[in-house]
Design a binder for these strands. Sequence first.
DNA 1: TCAATAGTGTCTGTAAGACAATATACC
DNA 2: GGTATATTGTCTTACAGACACTATTGA
Lengths: 224, 224
Amino acid sequence: MVNEPDYPRPLATVDVVPLALAGERLVIGTLTRDAEPERGRPALPGGFVRPQEDSDVEAAALRVLRQKADADPVHLEQLAVFSGLRRDPREWSLSVAFLCVLPPEAVAATQLDFAAHDGLDPLPFDHDHIVAETMARLRAKAGYSSLPLCLLAEPFTLPQAHDVFELTMGERLDRAAFRRKILDTGFLEETGETTRPVKGATRPAKLYRRTQTLRFTPRNFAGR
Amino acid sequence: MVNEPDYPRPLATVDVVPLALAGERLVIGTLTRDAEPERGRPALPGGFVRPQEDSDVEAAALRVLRQKADADPVHLEQLAVFSGLRRDPREWSLSVAFLCVLPPEAVAATQLDFAAHDGLDPLPFDHDHIVAETMARLRAKAGYSSLPLCLLAEPFTLPQAHDVFELTMGERLDRAAFRRKILDTGFLEETGETTRPVKGATRPAKLYRRTQTLRFTPRNFAGR
DNA sequence: TCAATAGTGTCTGTAAGACAATATACC
DNA sequence: GGTATATTGTCTTACAGACACTATTGA
């Protein structure tokens, strides 16, 4: 398994798609590249896998985020491997892409430049493709997991949760149905606190935090 | 992006989890390793990524399957990347694992040794872990995709489809509900033929084949 | 009191699960 | 007709979507 002298090793990298909530917008973080190729252009944060430093590829992604962007994710998950000559035609490479959720504070507090996910300027390499797959994954998981909640700063209200689900799914959700369902899942627990009305006179909302589990039981295709 | 002389490149491999249907059983294919380490033990088919031969990691997986196992998959999809020192403690490596569905004929016609997925002897490296994640993925996708149909030889009957979904999901499915749903999805088309009764006297069943699309719309968490 | 937002109750249609009934083959 | 399997019909229940109603705050 270890010796295969005839074959050169491919370049192995990680690329991170940093997602965050900025007001009413879902935004994606980029960094201006400081090395060739594509030096000076914004691109997804990424870097080489360093076997001597990184215990695994997740650790490599975290290192890249911390070192290059000064960012700490709420959630990080493998998206897929993108490989071949697509990225840099000069050399075959293999990149493990990660979907990364940052807290809303990160929009102001990191080295990243954020832009609306649907208003990004074209990115170099295959990064547009990686972003598209990330958005598809996020939307899909909004259908059967609590992933969108990671975008919110805790504690949050049910209307906020409702809004972030609408945003990530890209469709209207009935308020009453949403509340019933998400409260049934056990993903939320009340903090006991409520908001104090900000703008004038409105009813205060109960505050919640996430419970541990990120996922919940998906519905079955063919019944039970 | 290309030059980073200070850091050695990790070993990049692919590992394939070959799934097939053998009678009433879901089986997994292994090969006896012909190289160190773990020489002589059965393990998942795998091999090095060869940038000069393989256009991407999917191509690498296909090459490994064809060259080492003489097998041609009906379906191949990335499962995840497993990385670090887990596999071979002697060297950090990065393996892209693939879920692979073989047709039932492959059980007799390939170099692979097949064993029931729940009766496998312990495999070397982290292969048991990879198999476990594969089975979880298969089960999950049975809930919202037509993936299990790839396990069947075409044409097939609705009772056969029903059985393979029960098998992959690990639970009983109501026959009538299953038929209603899967016919609604548009994943099946009638061939116009029917089976001829094999054992004595039974009603013939209509025969179907898969339509192109592998996936269908998942149900939404929070409604529409 | 009003305005604004949070939260609940109720009706309805759809679809899944249970299960019985019917259909079609060969003996 | 009898048996075995395929296929369909029906009833019930659960739940999502629609939507209106109530609750709670500060002005």
